Amino acid sequence: MYQEERLLAILEFLKKNDRISIEQICSLFDVSRDTARRDLVRLEEEKSIVRTRGGAILPTFHDEIKSYTSRLNIVSEEKKIIGKKAASLIYPGDRVILDASTTVHACAEQLENIDCTVITNSINQADVLSAHPKVNIQLLGGTLEKEHRYLYGSSVVDKLSEYYVDKAFIGVVGISQKGATIAHEEDGIVKRKMIQQAKQVIVLADHTKLGNTEYFKFAELADIDLLITDKTPPKAIMDLLSNYNVELLTADQEDRRG
């Protein structure tokens, strides 16, 4: 077998088994340890693998987190459905926190003009809600994250500690056994404080976020009261939510029909 054929076979093995050892390469392809090492060096140079002690694994690729404006321009039908369901849970007299995620933005867009108080660190959501005369808006002041359009920092966290609200609506990039995660730490720290100040924590996440883990954990699954998503999750996710007493609300075909 030529080296090029062997390299392709090693990559196929990794796709199925997550990792491969020097010994496995020697056994599978009847080559020496030196040859196996040279194969791994070649694959590493091509950035096809990450070498480990005694073998290799596939590299981890993270989706680029697009700017807030870009994400708003491609808000999916799933997010709109989730947002509509979330907005229906905000009642007259409620005091709620809305974080700066685009799924929660979809909730703000569909909130009716009702007498309620909304606390947010999102300048976009404050702008959207300003069209509703009955909605009282508390915009948290802090450092502006220009690309993703949210305010963060110690002043935001300190101000949040003064509020006690009925519900907090929180978006995630990933939700898994490891908890609720986000791409940016400063965003996660604000979300963590929002959760602490709410009687009920409602996470909004389309099905692509379920089972994923991102960079920064801001909450345990036990911190979440309700998850709103767009379709019924796989059994493994359902069991996970049940184990942590997370209630599930799924948008159905009736919601799609409007």
Rank of each mutant, 00 (worst) to 15 (best):
M1L: 04
S154C: 14
H184N: 13
V203Y: 04
D30S: 10
S130C: 13
V135H: 03
D99W: 03
I137N: 06
L204R: 01
E220Y: 01
H62R: 14
R256Q: 07
I123E: 09
T143C: 08
A9P: 04
R37P: 04
I25K: 01
D230I: 06
D206L: 07
G142W: 12
S21Y: 05
V104K: 06
L210C: 11
A183H: 15
E78F: 06
C116R: 03
Y68W: 09
H148S: 14
I182F: 09
L8P: 02
E145G: 07
K85I: 13
S70A: 13
F216A: 08
A86W: 02
E4C: 00
L139M: 14
E214M: 14
L8M: 10
Q177I: 05
L139I: 14
K191F: 00
A126C: 12
I49E: 01
P59A: 14
S122W: 06
L40Y: 00
V104F: 02
E214R: 06
D115V: 06
E145Q: 11
C26M: 08
L249Q: 15
T120I: 12
L160E: 11
S70Y: 12
K16H: 13
G179E: 05
L111F: 05
K146R: 10
L98C: 14
Q177M: 05
S130A: 08
H132Y: 14
H207Y: 14
C116W: 03
E185S: 15
K16D: 15
K159H: 07
S27V: 00
Q3Y: 10
D187V: 08
K66N: 00
D115P: 01
T120N: 08
K16Q: 06
R19T: 15
P233H: 06
R6M: 10
T143S: 12
F169Y: 15
H207Q: 12
K47A: 05
I237R: 00
I22F: 11
A251I: 03
G179C: 10
R37H: 13
I119R: 04
L89W: 01
R257C: 05
I170D: 01
L160W: 01
S101L: 10
K159S: 08
F29K: 08
I22L: 13
Y163W: 09
N73V: 08
V135Y: 03
K134P: 00
I175C: 04
I65P: 00
D18Y: 10
A56M: 08
G211N: 15
I74C: 13
K79L: 07
T181P: 01
G153V: 15
A251F: 02
D166M: 07
Q200Y: 09
I224H: 04
E44H: 01
H105C: 12
E23D: 13
R192E: 11
L139Q: 04
D223Y: 03
M194Y: 02
D239E: 15
E162M: 13
Q110A: 05
D158T: 11
G83I: 07
K84A: 06
C26L: 02
D94P: 02
K217L: 01
L248W: 04
L151G: 02
